[in-house]
Deep mutational scan, measured.
Amino acid sequence: NQASVVANQLIPINTALALVMMRSEVVTPVGIPAEDIPRLVSMQVNRAVPLGTTLMPDMVKGYA
C-alpha cells in the first residue's frame, strides 16, 4: 500500500512545512504520496491541519 503524508503536529494556516511536521503512514483515503515529502518542505498550507490529518493536494499552496 502507498504511504501518504500525515501531519505530525497541528500545522497552523499559512505555515511553511518542515520535515518535523510530517510523517508517512498508510491511510485511507490516500493523500499526497510520502515520496513527495522533500518537495513539500517550505510550501505553505492554506488551512489549519490538525495532528494526524492526511495532507491532500488542495491543502498545500502550489502543490497541485
Rank of each mutant, 00 (worst) to 15 (best):
N1H: 13
N1F: 14
N1C: 06
N1T: 13
N1K: 12
N1V: 15
Q2I: 15
Q2V: 15
Q2P: 15
Q2M: 13
Q2E: 09
Q2T: 12
Q2K: 10
Q2S: 11
A3I: 08
A3L: 14
A3T: 11
S4N: 00
S4L: 01
S4Y: 03
S4F: 02
S4H: 02
S4M: 02
V5L: 03
V5Y: 01
V5R: 00
V5N: 01
V5K: 00
V6K: 03
V6E: 02
V6T: 05
A7G: 02
A7H: 01
A7R: 02
A7F: 02
N8Q: 08
N8H: 07
N8S: 12
N8W: 04
Q9C: 05
Q9W: 06
Q9F: 06
L10D: 11
L10M: 11
L10S: 15
I11Y: 00
I11L: 06
I11H: 01
P12T: 09
P12K: 08
P12C: 05
P12M: 07
P12S: 11
P12H: 08
P12N: 07
I13Q: 14
I13M: 14
I13V: 15
I13F: 14
N14V: 03
N14W: 14
N14P: 00
N14R: 06
N14I: 03
T15K: 05
T15G: 05
T15A: 12
T15E: 08
T15I: 07
A16Y: 13
A16K: 14
A16F: 14
A16H: 13
L17M: 06
L17A: 00
L17T: 00
L17P: 01
L17F: 02
L17E: 00
A18T: 15
A18P: 01
A18N: 13
A18V: 10
A18L: 15
A18E: 15
A18R: 13
A18F: 06
L19C: 06
L19Q: 09
L19E: 10
L19S: 13
L19H: 09
L19G: 07
V20E: 15
V20W: 15
V20Y: 14
V20G: 14
V20Q: 10
M21T: 03
M21F: 06
M21A: 05
M21W: 04
M21H: 14
M22S: 01
M22N: 01
M22C: 03
M22T: 01
M22V: 08
R23P: 02
R23M: 06
S24K: 12
S24E: 11
S24L: 08
S24G: 13
S24M: 10
S24D: 10
S24Y: 07
S24F: 07
S24A: 13
E25Q: 13
E25T: 08
E25H: 08
E25C: 05
E25M: 11
V26H: 11
V26T: 08
V27H: 03
V27M: 06
V27S: 04
V27K: 09
V27Q: 04
V27D: 03
T28Q: 12
T28K: 13
T28G: 07
P29A: 04
P29E: 05
P29K: 05
P29G: 03
P29H: 05
P29N: 04
P29I: 05
V30S: 15
V30K: 15
V30C: 05
G31F: 03
G31V: 01
G31W: 03
G31A: 03
G31C: 03
I32A: 01
P33G: 06
P33E: 04
P33A: 10
P33K: 07
P33F: 07
P33R: 09
A34E: 08
A34D: 07
A34I: 08
A34W: 07
A34H: 07
E35G: 12
E35H: 12
E35F: 15
D36I: 11
I37T: 06
I37M: 15
I37Q: 04
I37A: 09
P38S: 10
P38H: 11
P38V: 09
P38Y: 15
P38K: 14
P38R: 10
P38Q: 15
P38E: 09
R39Q: 11
R39G: 09
R39A: 09
R39N: 12
L40N: 02
L40S: 00
L40A: 00
L40V: 06
L40H: 00
L40K: 00
L40W: 02
L40T: 02
L40R: 01
L40E: 01
L40C: 03
V41A: 05
V41F: 04
V41R: 05
V41T: 06
V41N: 04
V41I: 11
S42D: 12
S42T: 09
S42R: 08
S42V: 03
M43G: 03
M43P: 01
M43H: 09
M43Q: 08
M43R: 10
M43D: 02
Q44I: 15
Q44T: 15
Q44A: 09
Q44S: 12
Q44V: 12
V45M: 05
V45C: 04
V45F: 00
V45S: 05
N46H: 08
N46I: 12
N46D: 10
N46S: 10
R47A: 09
R47G: 05
R47S: 09
R47F: 07
R47W: 06
R47K: 10
A48Q: 15
A48I: 14
A48L: 15
A48S: 14
V49A: 04
V49R: 03
V49C: 05
V49E: 02
V49M: 05
V49F: 03
V49K: 01
V49T: 04
V49W: 03
P50C: 05
P50W: 06
P50M: 09
P50I: 08
L51F: 13
L51V: 15
L51A: 14
L51M: 14
G52S: 06
G52A: 05
G52H: 08
G52W: 04
G52V: 02
T53R: 14
T53P: 00
T53I: 08
T54Y: 01
T54E: 00
L55E: 00
L55H: 01
L55F: 10
L55T: 01
L55D: 00
L55K: 00
L55R: 00
M56G: 04
M56C: 05
M56Q: 13
M56Y: 09
M56F: 10
M56R: 09
P57S: 06
P57G: 06
P57R: 08
P57C: 05
P57H: 07
P57N: 05
D58P: 06
D58T: 09
D58S: 13
D58H: 11
M59F: 13
M59Q: 04
M59L: 05
V60Y: 00
V60E: 01
V60T: 02
K61N: 15
K61Y: 15
K61P: 10
K61S: 15
K61L: 12
G62L: 09
G62W: 07
G62K: 07
G62C: 05
G62I: 04
G62N: 12
Y63H: 04
A64I: 15
